[in-house]
Computed example of a mutant assay.
Amino acid sequence: MRKIENNSLKMKQLKTIVIAIITTVFLGFTNDVKAQSNAGTTMNLDAEQQSIVTIASLTAKGDLENLETALVEGLEAGLTINEIKEVMVHLYAYCGFPRSLHGLRTFIKVLDERKAKGIVDALGAEAAPIEDKRTKYERGKANLEALVQAKLDGPPADYAQFAPIIEVFLKEHLFADIFDRDILDYQQRELVTVSVLATIGDVEPMLRSHMNICLIQGITPAQLEELVDVAGKNVDQAKIESAKEVLNELLESKK
Results as ranks from 00 to 15, higher is better:
His90Trp: 07
Ala60His: 07
Ser51Val: 02
Leu104His: 09
Val87Gln: 08
Ala35Val: 12
Pro129Asp: 08
Ala122Arg: 10
Ala125Cys: 02
Gly74Ala: 09
Ala35Pro: 05
Thr80Trp: 06
Thr30Val: 15
Asp132His: 07
Val53Ser: 08
Leu91Thr: 13
Glu65Leu: 08
Cys95Phe: 05
Arg139Met: 07
Arg134Pro: 09
Leu45Asn: 08
Leu123Cys: 00
Thr69Ala: 13
Gly124Gln: 06
Leu27Lys: 10
Glu83Ala: 02
Lys61Thr: 04
Arg99Ile: 00
Arg99Ser: 06
Ala127Pro: 06
Asp32Leu: 14
Gly118Thr: 03
Glu73Asp: 15
Lys61Trp: 01
Pro129Ala: 10
Asp121Trp: 02
Arg139Asn: 01
Val87Thr: 13
Arg114Phe: 00
Gly118Glu: 07
Lys61Leu: 11
Lys141Asp: 03
Arg114Thr: 00
Thr59Phe: 05
Ile84Val: 15
Ala39Trp: 09
Asn82Glu: 13
Ser57Val: 05
Leu101Cys: 01
Ala56Val: 11
Glu126Cys: 00
Leu64Pro: 04
Lys85His: 08
Ile22Glu: 11
Asn31Glu: 12
Val25Cys: 02
Ile119Leu: 07
Phe26Leu: 15
Gly78Asn: 09
Gly103Asp: 12
Gly124Arg: 08
Ile84Gly: 04
Ile119Arg: 00
Gly96Leu: 12
Gly74Lys: 08
His90Cys: 03
Asp46Arg: 11
Arg99Pro: 01
Asp46Glu: 09
Phe107Gly: 05
Ile21His: 01
Ile55Pro: 02
Leu71Cys: 10
Met88Ser: 06
Asp121Ser: 15
Thr54Phe: 06
Ala70Gln: 02
Gly118Gln: 02
Asp63Gly: 06
Leu75Met: 11
Ala77Asp: 03
Ala70Lys: 04
Lys136Cys: 01
Asp46Asn: 15
Tyr137Asn: 05
Asn31Tyr: 15
Val18Asn: 03
Ser57Tyr: 11
Ile119Asn: 00
Phe97Met: 07
Lys61Met: 03
Arg134Trp: 05
Glu113Thr: 04
Ile81Phe: 03
Lys136Ser: 11
Phe29Val: 14
Ile17Ser: 00
Val33Tyr: 11
Arg105Ser: 15
Glu68Asn: 14
Pro98Ile: 05
Phe29Asp: 04
Glu131Thr: 15
Glu131Trp: 00
Gln50Asn: 12
Thr59Tyr: 04
Ile21Asp: 01
Leu101Gln: 04
Arg114Ser: 01
His90Pro: 06
Asp32Arg: 13
Ala20Met: 13
Gly118Met: 05
Gln36Tyr: 11
Phe26Trp: 13
